[in-house]
Design a protein around this nucleic acid. Sequence first.
DNA 1: TTATCTGCAAATTGTTTGCAATTAT
DNA 2: ATAATTGCAAACAATTTGCAGATAA
Lengths: 147, 147
Amino acid sequence: MSNAERVEELKRRFSARSGRLTRQRAAILEVLAEHSHQHLTADEIHGKVRDLEPSVGLATVYRTLDLLVEMGLVSKISFGEDAYRYELASTREHQHHHLVCLRCNRVEEVRADLLHRLEEMVEKTYGFSVTDHRLQFFGICRHCRGE
Amino acid sequence: MSNAERVEELKRRFSARSGRLTRQRAAILEVLAEHSHQHLTADEIHGKVRDLEPSVGLATVYRTLDLLVEMGLVSKISFGEDAYRYELASTREHQHHHLVCLRCNRVEEVRADLLHRLEEMVEKTYGFSVTDHRLQFFGICRHCRGE
DNA sequence: TTATCTGCAAATTGTTTGCAATTAT
DNA sequence: ATAATTGCAAACAATTTGCAGATAA
């Protein structure tokens, strides 16, 4: 799927849930699609959105991100920093997890799904109906170890 | 291990790492031990500490928590809310994960360690040396489902 | 047309910091 | 004795909110 297609798909999904597709919202979706593997902060998104639509305010970015999270199109993640980071939920769909390096703070992704079994166990043992999960590993990355 | 013993152990570990054991720090350790399964916010800890030592300031609570996190005695966790939550690291030692209910916001604990295999995979495949991990499941809890 | 959305600035909230007074060692 | 620690108030940073004007449907 090309990036343009991905953006169209997102816009369609957005409109379908009765959201008004404004210039600013479209720009935000485009930035998210463009950087779908980067876990951007609201402020970073704001900066990139301004390259497309210079007048967009930070408050609008926050409001739109809240909306997208509520719609389930975007995930809001904390890596233990000061600010939250956001990414397209579609990126999460096929399970991926995060490696957070405690030395350089870079975040790498792991593509692997070994949690099905654990989820089943959780559903059975705790009566808890799982809709999403988040797995983060903390440690020292390849690059930092090499030094 | 009784709670009093646990507190003594903590104080000993704290002093061993060249920390001055002040009244306020002792009170904070006691509160953490007393509520070792509750994931309190700094503000909640502050409230409970004041029952023991009424004059302790919120800034001191933050400074002490930072210190304890740095020493590895305490873990700082985000559940995607506004504020961070803290818990004794000893609680985490024997692996446990969190079930976050999206309806009532309660957090339950899962005691199970099925991540060894994943950690090994991560170390081998990504050259990433894992020192800690964090696993959260989001969904609807038993109580909320029952209604 | 009109209910929704926006930008701006002001307000809020969680957390951090400077500093003079206090206290554990 | 003295260097570390404290409480307070002020500073900060991320996020939210009120409102008058703009705009997608």
